[in-house]
């Protein structure tokens, strides 16, 4: 009997979700966003942070062209519900990163002790936020690989805080991992699933 990441027998809906996400498209698309975030950090251009949401707009068109012709169409919940969740996730994610990116200019308005706590732990705070967003994204979009990316992100970015290397490096590492796993899933999926017969 197939088991989920928590060792419990998988229910039917989870099995169907596994089938739906075995193409790796979500991993690839979000991985590109994470790599772009690493680029923004490396180049120190917080004004470009809004651009990291752009790859997500390609998720549905890629699914339509790559996945649906091979396994058919399945919708897990009403379209409006999915759209609302996706928009919510993108807004929350961008808001979190924008707040962090622009915290510097507004620190005069905040108490100095609070500012110091933020400044001394900004990498850890970022680690928690990124991990939380990846985990929440996985839960909302029903993809269990994202729990692993969330944990990896938390560990690597926290390591940057304690060991002292620049934070864009572990973010880049997480993005690269997502791309590698996503690509591997996609290749296996394409090998296994040919374009299906018409009705």
């Amino acid at each position: 009997m197939k088991k989920n990441n928590f060792g419990k027998p998988m229910k039917l809906r989870q099995k169907l979700l596994m089938i739906y996400h075995e193409d790796g498209v979500l991993d690839l698309v979000v991985g590109i966003s994470v790599l772009m975030l690493a680029g923004v950090m490396l180049l120190n251009l917080p004004a470009l942070i809004g651009l990291i949401g752009i790859p997500l707009t390609f998720y549905i068109p890629i699914k339509d062209r790559v996945t649906i012709p091979r396994i058919g169409f399945i919708q897990f919940e009403a379209k409006e519900s999915t759209r609302r969740r996706l928009i919510f996730l993108v807004i929350v994610g961008l808001a979190a990163f924008i707040i962090l990116a622009f915290l510097g200019p507004i620190q005069n308005w905040i108490s100095s002790s609070f500012t110091e706590i933020i400044r001394n732990n900004d990498v850890l705070i970022f680690a928690v936020i990124q991990a939380a967003i990846l985990f929440a994204g996985g839960e909302i979009l029903n993809n269990s690989s994202f729990r692993i990316y969330s944990l990896l992100s938390l560990v690597l970015v926290a390591a940057a805080h304690f060991i002292g290397f620049r934070v864009w490096i572990p973010v880049f590492g997480v993005g690269l991992t997502m791309e590698a796993l996503g690509l591997s899933k996609l290749i296996n999926f394409l090998k296994k699933s040919s374009i299906t017969e018409k009705e």
Partner: peptide, 16 residues
């Protein structure tokens, strides 16, 4: 059972 746990699916998915 499959249709019970999702919103909808097409002929190709269910048949496959």
């Amino acid at each position: 059972s499959m249709l019970y746990v999702i919103d909808s699916a097409d002929f190709v998915f269910l048949h496959r």
